[in-house]
Design a protein around this nucleic acid. Sequence first.
DNA 1: CTATATATAGACAGACCTGTCTGTCTTCAA
DNA 2: TTGAAGACAGACAGGTCTGTCTATATATAG
Lengths: 186, 186
Amino acid sequence: MTSPARQRILDTATRLFYTEGVRAVGIDRIIAEAGVAKATFYHHFPAKDELVTAYVEDQGQRQRALADELPEGPGRERLLTLFERMGEFGSLPGYRGCPFINAAAEYPDRSHPVRKAVAAFREWFRDLMLSLLKDARHPTPEETADILMIVRDGVAVGFDLDDPAVVRASIRETVTRVLGPAQELS
Amino acid sequence: MTSPARQRILDTATRLFYTEGVRAVGIDRIIAEAGVAKATFYHHFPAKDELVTAYVEDQGQRQRALADELPEGPGRERLLTLFERMGEFGSLPGYRGCPFINAAAEYPDRSHPVRKAVAAFREWFRDLMLSLLKDARHPTPEETADILMIVRDGVAVGFDLDDPAVVRASIRETVTRVLGPAQELS
DNA sequence: CTATATATAGACAGACCTGTCTGTCTTCAA
DNA sequence: TTGAAGACAGACAGGTCTGTCTATATATAG
């Protein structure tokens, strides 16, 4: 399906785009570090923007795969585990913020494919939390999903801009305050 | 103090950096739109990075000025008003996200002056919320300040990436859930 | 065997970027 | 009146960026 060269390009671009920013990384650097010819690059990605879009979409795929690995259990527990996982990732040494938020910062045009990919991820993520809230029989799942979206973004940003230990220590308390007391099983 | 030319450069840069991103805007564009000679630009800002730093620091100053305009009253009310104001700004047509978060996305190096300026703003903002929480006699002001910082970032991001009306409708409920019930005056 | 797809290396064009430099003009203060 | 500060216009250098192109090599499928 995907050729090794294409994969090497995408992997290299992912690493460089995430750690240094999209505009900060040129094509020449990517092809050099991926060990690929320029023609090969433009064969797979007709323009840089398409590589950037592929990068963002691929991040979405990885997030979905990560969500699939959430252990079974009641919705409330899975929700807490989801945020716990964010805390683990955010505490890793190479964490540089949310790739979607960062990419959006460099692509102001809301009609650009990159922003579309960001929007698609966000809709999926909100839906995921919404379904977990419904499973937990939360009294206000829609409203709470919107609030948890705010928390998600704040956490993702805070791990990059503040002391990760402080943010991590705040996550569980934040989510429990937002969720309120656990609902009785009817 | 500040010459008109310098001010015109900074104003133009602010507008362009905020709406299009820092790396997306070149010096030539700034001097053209500011109506300034190149030599004048480099007289006031020896390098582009210093202009970017000045831009971020200036944003910090504006935020402080905005906070000074908060009406008098009990801490809890001022806190709610603070977030209400974020909702007003975030709903404006030209809103393109938090300038600090966006700038940080383009400057990964934490030791860079731009990141220092971002960190300085964030410390000030957390301290502001902390003092308001203490004024409100909140039982856990430190912990809650950290949580409100998460909310602030989430709100700032959400206004750019999601439907502003939805975010705005969520703010008050988010903050009240985080704050918990109002404290009795002792 | 041959045609196609995929890969390699690297020159090249043209745009754009930052930053330097020359030279002129005005204003204002000593 | 002289000199310094600040501003102007714009050429220029040197580098980087994206994207195109030529030319060649290899593997595989028909």
